[in-house]
Design a protein around this nucleic acid. Sequence first.
DNA 1: ATGAAAGCGCTAACAA
DNA 2: TTGTTAGCGCTTTCAT
Lengths: 346, 346
Amino acid sequence: MAKRPTNPGKPTIRDIAREAGVSVATVSRVTHDDPRVTVDTKLRVQEAIDRLDYRPSALGRALSYQRTNTLGIVLPGLGGPYFAQLIEGAESVAVARGVVINVLGTHLRPDAVAAVRQLAERTDGLIIAGGTIPDDELARLARTVRVVLVAGEAPGVPWVRTDGRTAAAEITAHLIETHGHRRLRFVGEPTGSPDTTERYAGFRAALAAHGLEEAGEPLRYGLDVPSGAVAARDLDRSGALPDALVCANDELAIGLLATLPGLGHRIPADVAITGFDDTALAELASPRLTTVHQPIVELGARAAAGALDDAAWGEPLADGAAPVNLLATTLVIRESCGCAAEGVAG
Amino acid sequence: MAKRPTNPGKPTIRDIAREAGVSVATVSRVTHDDPRVTVDTKLRVQEAIDRLDYRPSALGRALSYQRTNTLGIVLPGLGGPYFAQLIEGAESVAVARGVVINVLGTHLRPDAVAAVRQLAERTDGLIIAGGTIPDDELARLARTVRVVLVAGEAPGVPWVRTDGRTAAAEITAHLIETHGHRRLRFVGEPTGSPDTTERYAGFRAALAAHGLEEAGEPLRYGLDVPSGAVAARDLDRSGALPDALVCANDELAIGLLATLPGLGHRIPADVAITGFDDTALAELASPRLTTVHQPIVELGARAAAGALDDAAWGEPLADGAAPVNLLATTLVIRESCGCAAEGVAG
DNA sequence: ATGAAAGCGCTAACAA
DNA sequence: TTGTTAGCGCTTTCAT
């Protein structure tokens, strides 16, 4: 081990102690605003701290405290408003506790599991989005770190989510019952994420409940706006537009919404479109997007609370129902489904 | 200090040593694939490691190694394709070095400086986006951590960026010279970020070079799609559309592009629109967006390389010119400016 | 080939 | 009020 020649960069607590002519314990007390230090010594120590521009090493503290004051968030990717809002929700509770957040996007990582493990090593808790890492790894992590799964569910791991299946069935039923559509298609990759899987299931359930079949295979595209634009082109080229397109999320829907008109298809006259999430864009698009409102920010906040709290939080398996983890969604009817502006239906 | 009762969770190197009947040094050697351990003991140790599911604490290692194998990225926010791409670029070099990335969004943090300091404490290097924290704090950080400023410039801090001023002047000149527009307005908050400041300066420079005045104050909106949609509404309500709108980035432009037609304004016939960045959306919008291509992924990669390397990298102040930090942009002419499809002009 | 021990930066129980 | 010291988990020299 290096013998610390003189001052290779950052001053340590010992440098300050020596400089101020006190013990390291006293320096520690000063950095902690411990009231038991004489105002006099405190001043002397503070002076040394300022002069050497000392700040306690988070690493050393973490090792001693046995906690890092860090919350990790694992998401598939970092793009898009959904994840930004999720992080925002988590930040809000993290800030309140003086905890800093570390975000990891697995899509960019060839070995997601290894990256998550490394992250777990440096955090007090972990928020993990559904579909990012395998269930068994999730369970394994949950044994050594506080883990909360968001938008997903796995055995033995606390979770927070919404009931996407029911919500998707509702919005699909609206299209069928209120607007009389019969030929509907789903847009999104059903096996892509647990969220999408659920929504697709709800879509099919509503169809079945009305004695309908899908008007075709799901249109398998990514969950971003560009994918929606591409889907629009492909759909136009195929020549056969259905009555309505139920999209896996808002961004996809917006991509369609912004591109189809340019190709000669009017919305909702020629084809109705619905989204999912109710992100900022939904309200601003034209026509405004009919979608399902999800409390994304709160999802993030709850997950953070769960991942940070020592209290036994969300042990849904223990006492049967644990409704606090299942947040409510609401159907938001606007105009892209065919309803008139200001009109409300359900 | 707690006396570590028995096994409160994670096993430590000492647990393994005891379990395998060896010293901690030997365990350490095994976890490092040190060839000097008998295959026999190695097996015994490995067995204990597997059985107890032991993995070395990153914290302990970091403290001993004096490096964390972590790269920090500080951005204003996490939304949008620009930052996603920047992170992608940084990830690519981080992955290659077995380094993990920590992302921090300052917009959500009331005390950004404190959060960045805390992050600096846990990383070997920091990539900081221009406009996130004050210059003096930047300089201060640069004294104790490797810092690279991306999309910005500050005294005493290595940086990587593009020449946004020149690029903005070029695209503005195109609008004036090729399309004969005279009444142009800038969309974006000039004081919002160094990037936007530069682009606005370029816009004004081009105007001045052609003896023109701005057709009005900059339209001060955020850099996201929803802001563009709002800008479109406001502009429509004001009744006075200019010949062309030069937007601070693609998202803003896309918001305008997607909303103005619904309000009765044709693009580019009634008003021409240009973006900046050349994100995926630009190619897919209709009309396709004329914009400035920026090598964002490479910007992120270079920044990461700089923040991680020990080699003296980008010391632009030392030897005068350091062109390697100034990446080239290219003008991408599509149709939103008024050019015909497939047409190229400059 | 293996172990003992010092040290990384900090905290906190215990003494003085 | 202040100091001494053991310990957090790990690495690494130096002995053996």
